[in-house]
Amino acid sequence: MEMTCAREVFTSIFKSGAVTKKCCGELKVLGKVCHDAFVKKTLEHPIYENLSELAIAKKSTKTWNPCASVIDISPSSSA
């Protein structure tokens, strides 16, 4: 995942913001297990210990679900 997309995903979960279609595609490629592991590992860091795990779990889902529903449309090759 590109750093700009990693920032978008992080910001949408731990702060406020949206994830672009491009970055949703990159997140989708990583998969739900990786997404969940990223959130869990981030919450283990002392700087985030005062955050509500329930609130972050909700924001994580609100980030993942729209990205998971993004349909990849590859441009057709021209002959």
Rank of each mutant, 00 (worst) to 15 (best):
M1N: 13
M1R: 11
E2I: 08
E2M: 05
E2W: 09
M3V: 09
T4N: 11
T4S: 11
T4V: 09
A6W: 01
A6L: 10
A6G: 09
R7W: 00
R7T: 00
R7Q: 06
V9Q: 04
V9P: 05
F10I: 06
F10A: 09
T11G: 09
T11N: 11
T11L: 07
S12M: 00
S12G: 02
S12W: 02
F14Y: 02
K15V: 11
K15S: 08
K15A: 13
K15H: 11
S16I: 09
S16E: 11
A18E: 12
A18R: 15
A18G: 13
V19I: 05
V19G: 02
T20N: 00
T20C: 05
T20K: 08
K21V: 15
K22L: 00
C23E: 03
C23M: 00
C23H: 05
C23S: 02
C24V: 09
C24L: 03
G25E: 10
G25W: 12
E26D: 04
E26Y: 00
E26A: 07
E26I: 04
L27F: 03
K28Y: 05
V29G: 10
L30S: 07
L30P: 02
G31L: 06
G31D: 02
G31E: 07
G31P: 01
K32N: 15
K32H: 12
K32Y: 14
K32R: 15
K32S: 14
V33P: 04
V33Y: 07
C34I: 13
H35L: 07
H35F: 07
H35P: 00
D36H: 12
D36K: 00
D36M: 08
D36G: 10
A37C: 10
A37N: 10
A37K: 14
V39S: 05
V39D: 11
V39M: 03
K40N: 07
K40H: 14
K40W: 06
K40R: 07
K41I: 04
K41L: 10
K41Y: 03
T42D: 12
L43S: 00
L43F: 01
E44Q: 15
P46W: 04
P46N: 04
I47G: 06
Y48G: 08
Y48T: 08
N50R: 07
N50T: 00
L51W: 12
L51R: 08
S52P: 01
S52I: 05
E53A: 08
E53F: 13
L54G: 13
A55F: 05
I56R: 04
I56V: 09
K58Y: 10
K58E: 06
K58W: 00
K59L: 05
K59T: 07
K62I: 01
K62T: 11
K62H: 14
K62D: 14
T63C: 07
W64D: 01
W64F: 02
W64C: 03
N65F: 05
P66W: 01
P66E: 01
P66D: 02
C67V: 06
C67A: 07
S69Q: 15
S69A: 15
S69N: 14
S69L: 10
V70C: 03
V70E: 00
V70F: 01
I71Q: 12
I71G: 08
I71F: 05
D72F: 14
D72M: 13
I73E: 15
S74G: 06
S74I: 10
P75Q: 15
P75C: 14
S76W: 15
S76L: 15
S76Q: 13
S77C: 15
S78F: 15
S78H: 12
